[in-house]
Amino acid sequence: MASAPAPGVVVVFDFDRTIIDWDSDDWVITKLGAADAFLRLRPTMRWNPLMDRMMAELHARGKTAEDIRDCLMSAPLDAHVISSIKTAAALGCDLRVVSDANTFFIETVLAHHGVLGCFSEISTNPARVDADGRLRISPFHDTAAAPHGCSLCPENMCKGKIIEKIQSMADTKNQHFIYIGDGKGDYCPSLKLSEGDYVMPKENYPLWKLICNNKQLLKAEVHPWNSGEDLEKTLLKLVNKMITPPAQVSSLDCSKCEMSKPASTEVGHHQALRVPH
C-alpha cells in the first residue's frame, strides 16, 4: 500500500519540453518525413488545425496511426523525470497534465514509459483515429460555439481556465499547486496560482522570460529548473516541504502508476472523472 496522501498537493505538468525535452508535434512531423508540408502550410494556418492537417498529410503518405505511435515511443524521456513522476505520485500528490499537445501523443508516451497511471487527469486537445485510420486532432475549446475569451492564450486552449476548474472542485484553503511548464501558454495558468503555490518555469524558455518581466503579477513562489535532474530535485524538495514530517521515498509504493488510466478532459467533456487506483 502507498503511504498516506500528501494533503492537497496538486502537481500540474505541461508536456512538450517539460515532461519530454522535445516537442511531440515536431518530432512526429520530422521523423515521419513531412517537414516539407509543414513549412509550406505553417504561414497559412493556426497551430491546432495545422496539426490535424499534418495528420492528414501523413495518412496520405501511407503513415498509419501505429507508425505515429512507434515514432513517439522511439523518443527519449529523461530517467529523472520518470523518477520524479513516480515518486510524487507515491507520496500521494494529485498529478495532472495540462497540455496543448493531444491525447494520442501524451498517452502513448506516458504509457510507454510506465507512468500513465500516475496521473489522475489529462487536459489536452482530443485525438482519435477515424474509420479510415487517420489520426484526427480537435481543439480543446470549441472555438465556434464557446470561445474562451482569454487574450493571453491560443484560441483552442486556455490553460488558466483549466486551472480555475481544478481549483473550483476542491477546498483551495487546504490545497496547494505546483505548476511546471516552459511555454507562453503556461503563463496564464501561473497567474491563477495563489500564495502558498509554486510555479516551476524552465529557465530561458518563454514562461521564464515572461515571469522575469512581470514578477509583480505572480502570487506563487517561483522555482526555476533547467534539466530533468534539476526538475526532479526541485519538485521533490517542494513536495517534501509540504509534507510534515518529510516522507521516506525509499519506502513508498509506485505500483499505481502501472495500474490505471487517467481521465481525459476534452471538448464537450469538461467535468473531470476521477480514476480509481
Rank of each mutant, 00 (worst) to 15 (best):
C118L: 07
L238Y: 01
S24W: 00
K202H: 15
K165S: 12
G185R: 02
H223E: 09
G33R: 13
P276I: 11
A144C: 06
D171S: 12
P246L: 11
R40K: 15
M259C: 11
V275D: 07
A4Y: 10
T172Q: 07
V11T: 03
T108H: 07
V275R: 14
A79C: 08
E221M: 12
V9A: 09
A88S: 12
A170N: 07
F119M: 14
R46E: 13
A65S: 14
K233F: 11
G181A: 09
W27G: 05
D197K: 11
D182K: 00
S120M: 02
P139C: 10
A75I: 10
Q175N: 09
A220G: 11
E57G: 06
C118A: 15
L193V: 13
M200N: 11
M169S: 13
N240K: 09
G114H: 08
E232I: 02
A220P: 08
V267G: 02
G185Q: 00
E121W: 05
M1Q: 11
E266G: 06
Y205V: 10
K192L: 09
V129N: 04
T87F: 02
M45I: 13
K159M: 08
V222C: 13
K63C: 11
A146C: 08
L152N: 05
D132V: 03
F38S: 01
L39S: 09
E107F: 04
S120E: 13
L41N: 09
I85R: 01
K159T: 03
D130Q: 12
P43H: 09
D25C: 15
L77T: 10
C150V: 03
S251H: 03
S264A: 12
L218H: 05
K241G: 10
P154I: 10
